[in-house]
Design a protein around this nucleic acid. Structure first.
Lengths: 208, 208, 208, 208
DNA sequence: CATGAATGAGTTTTCATTCAT
DNA sequence: CATGAATGAAAACTCATTCAT
């Protein structure tokens, strides 16, 4: 029922400003603890202005999710298009994910929010967007893995669906730890360690 | 501020009932969306009774966290005590984690809650408990890994701290995906896949 | 979904107090212009107290309607039970209606509210209560009229349903004029005039 | 405060359009529940345009009232001018009222609005217009009745003021029942019944 | 004349917490 | 120990009105 409003240039920029502030606040304080007043105060506008752009708190949250997921996922899909050995692409993929997470702190926090906010409290749209995100992410990974298995670079011992789930878990889990512990696990060294684990496992071969 | 109250047998059982209900509700609906009224209604007692056992909503949440973490972590520490090759113990550890997650759905949901509820909204106690859990979990894992590395069964190529972080991420991430997608990723087959990945990596060796 | 709450004696009286105030206010200012704040301020209680007794503004309005209609209609039904000539009972009926309207100014205003408040804005319960009231009122009148027609005291020239509608109109219409003009049309003299009109019409017989 | 603005032809038609839409909406949803946004949306113009024609929501409502009352009352006054026996004219009057109500559904709804909207919420102008309408309506009727009484066609037993009040009540009351019950009481058969009641009363003469 | 974005006071509603009984 | 009515600060949301363009 969202009527896409045509906004003037100024309207566009103001809306963007709101989105920025909301992103910051949701990321910092969480969904519930962020009030419309907070968002409005940050933008120095009247409360009604917020409701001119969105019909509810749900709606702006949903828009943030959609926006960020889209750019996130499409960046990954771009890698998939490349003509390169799958193993290399998989590493690029993770490198890229890592880079993006490092680069876009706010985006990280939002994705954290996505996966952490109890979807039951939201309208079904949020649920749908969330599921879409995971589906598309998994699809990309499964494709990578299957390509790699066909190509012979990735072991056929592990089920592709399972492996995709595990890889997603690692990404989500790293973000969560970041958030909870308020530390920085997403630095290059961590990426290298991760790649090493994925490449060779953690057991000493001769002991296998 | 916490005065350890001496409870009668009836009081004990009533308190336990409250905890059960609260655990269910927090797990289902999240922290904010679960009201004291919800908890009280589920237990068929007066609201004042609730406040006799706990001074605030925070406090019961904190108690649930503490309880569950304690039993969770101590189970893992038990494994650490055993006299067995480290590699075997590490596999036992993950098997145990998997089993516990499968067995204690509610506990899963609570851990999910822990990592997802924005700690900033809570008093510092919740923050402390959360950090403690992660610290102890990480400590156990780091110890395992270092033992394995000394023993020669675990590769020295990967930094122990990094590896611990990755392992925790996998556990957290699996839980989150469970929760968000409302599917069941925590079945034995997944555990097998995970162990296989950790043992040998995902790359075909001859390609290394 | 209304859970009938068991109230203490004090609770009962406080609820009654709220109802009184709300009745006054709705009658004076209308439904929309009466705010929860108004009602609460009049009762010198916290706003939450109001929401302890009713879940919404709709709900207290509905309760007022139901209460007042019930006592209003049941008084009329009592007359119907009496063993008297129908013509006399009909006059009693109107006398009673007149008396009640005169006696219960607030009730008048509420009935005014009922018939005047645009039901579309309310939940369907208000609609149902309103329709029920009219149905029961019409039913009583139709019964009276048909009894009178059988008995021979009321003319068979007029359709009973139509006549009932006309009689209701007179009652409603008098109330409305009272309200709008802020005058007092409901005095005994007016009742006498009304009975005279109904008895003999307004035309001079020889001219018919 | 009202400055009579000179409007272009386009302005005139646009204003008329607004009035039409507002009439529909007020009639359907009531005064409060109809928002300026509703009116503007229905007319596909900007909100500022609305405020160019009227200074407030009150004002357009007032204009609608004035317009409709004027045409309503003047039609009745025309009948009064006619050179005919009073009894016949009275019947014409009611026939005309009935016809108009049937013909102009929207007008009905507005008159309904007039008598139902709590005048206290409005500025005094609305109150004045409403009172004027009733006064003029009553005046016409009283004149009719007194003429009839002089002429000998209407019984002198009933006070002319009282009778006028009763007749107005019938009209208002029928409209209200229409509105509330969402049925059609304003058809010709009802008019016939009403005239019969007024002519001869409802009692069997021999019983008088 | 026309637009529609911006405003903010005002309204309904929620819910953790207290306290008299 | 137990109850549940009472509280009120805080939150989401509405809408008549204004004004820069």
């Amino acid at each position: 029922m969202k009527t896409a409003k045509k906004l003037t240039a100024k309207g566009q920029s103001r809306k963007k400003e709101f989105l920025e502030k909301a992103l910051d606040l949701f990321g910092e304080k969480g969904y519930h603890a962020t009030t419309i007043d907070d968002i409005v105060r940050a933008g120095a506008t009247g409360k009604g202005t917020f409701y001119w752009y969105w019909q509810s708190k749900d709606e702006i949250f949903l828009e943030l999710l959609s926006n960020k997921f889209e750019s996130y996922i499409s960046a990954l899909e771009n890698i998939q298009q490349m003509k390169l050995p799958t193993a290399d692409k998989l590493i690029m993929l993770f490198t890229e994910i890592g880079n993006m997470l490092v680069k876009y702190r706010k985006l990280c926090k939002l994705i954290y929010l996505l996966i952490s906010t109890n979807a039951d409290e939201f309208n079904s749209d949020v649920l749908k967007v969330t599921n879409d995100y995971y589906s598309r992410f998994r699809k990309i990974l499964v494709q990578f893995i299957q390509d790699g298995q066909k190509e012979g670079s990735i072991s056929r011992d592990v089920d592709a669906q399972h492996l995709a789930t595990i890889l997603i878990s690692i990404v989500d889990g790293l973000l969560l730890q970041e958030k909870v512990m308020n530390t920085n696990y997403l630095h290059p060294k961590m990426g290298e360690s991760l790649i090493r684990v994925l490449r060779s496992g953690i057991m000493v071969k001769s002991a296998g």
